[in-house]
């Protein structure tokens, strides 16, 4: 173990009421295999639960997965809470069913990348590596 080797910690969170965790879990596994520490929150987390988990776990990255269509309501709430808690330096990325036209406003509110259906997991891993180093 070397001091310089910082472990990248990622919170994989599922806000929204849907139970579609296939994507979240496939990504979680891929991130684990890439050597990251992945903290999975489980289904149906409120914005407050997501933000507080991110704080306590002191993660470098938050990956939000949502397929319910409620992202335009829940994501701004999460971003607001992160700011309030002083952890808006965390890299926030998202995936799921997100219409093209929502991507711009989401990026504007600080969600750095949105990975839609069909994104190779390697792309997500590389993106995180690039941003966190």
């Amino acid at each position: 173990m070397t001091e310089s080797e910082r472990k990248i910690r990622v919170l994989v969170a599922k806000p929204g009421l849907d139970g579609h965790d296939r994507g979240a879990k496939v990504v979680a596994r891929a991130l684990r295999d890439a050597g990251f520490e992945v903290i999975y929150t489980g289904l149906r987390q409120t914005p407050e639960q997501v933000a507080e988990a991110a704080l306590q776990e002191d993660v470098d990255v938050i990956g939000l997965s949502i397929l319910s269509g409620a992202h335009m309501r829940l994501f701004p709430e999460i971003m607001k809470l992160l700011k309030e808690k002083g952890i808006d330096d965390v890299l926030v990325i998202a995936g799921g069913i997100i219409p093209e036209e929502d991507i711009k406003p989401l990026k504007k509110m600080g969600i750095k990348a949105i990975f839609g259906p069909g994104t190779p997991t390697t792309e997500i891993v590389e993106y995180i590596r690039k941003k966190i180093r």
Binding site: G35, Y40, T41, G42
Partner: peptide
């Protein structure tokens, strides 16, 4: 890989 999947919080999420 040194990676880990940590899921213990799931059970305690009401205390998050």
């Amino acid at each position: 890989t040194g990676g880990a999947l940590l899921g213990d919080r799931i059970r305690m999420s009401r205390f998050s």
